[in-house]
């Protein structure tokens, strides 16, 4: 299946520079958000915020073909 993946803040460093934080990723059916994180080589020393189609989901969330996935490190402001 193909996913539309966006990485934000310092996580952009885990994608090629010209990708501007946005890539298409191919993963086997049944893959979870945790599988995607592993696939992207994102280290697990910080908690991450995972959004699938605009909703926050846990790491064991099973992804579907065509999902829009955004992954954020801890961010804040206001």
């Amino acid at each position: 299946m193909q996913l539309e993946v966006r990485l934000f803040a310092n996580l952009r460093d885990y994608l090629p520079k010209d990708s501007k934080g946005q890539v298409k990723v191919e993963l086997p059916e049944g893959s979870t958000a945790a599988d995607l994180i592993k696939h992207l080589n994102i280290p697990r020393d910080l908690p991450l915020i995972i959004m699938v189609n605009g909703r926050r989901e846990p790491e064991n969330h099973v992804l579907q073909d065509g999902d829009r996935v955004g992954i954020f490190p801890p961010v804040g402001g206001g």
């Binding site: 966006r6 803040a9 959004m51 954020f72 490190p73 804040g76």
Partner: peptide, 22 residues
């Protein structure tokens, strides 16, 4: 992580993308 890293690096504007995504 927010007070010590996120805010100093990107400031509050880092919220544009997460609110957009949400």
């Amino acid at each position: 992580p927010v007070c010590g890293q996120g805010l100093p690096t990107y400031g509050t504007a880092v919220l544009i993308n997460i609110l957009n995504e949400a």
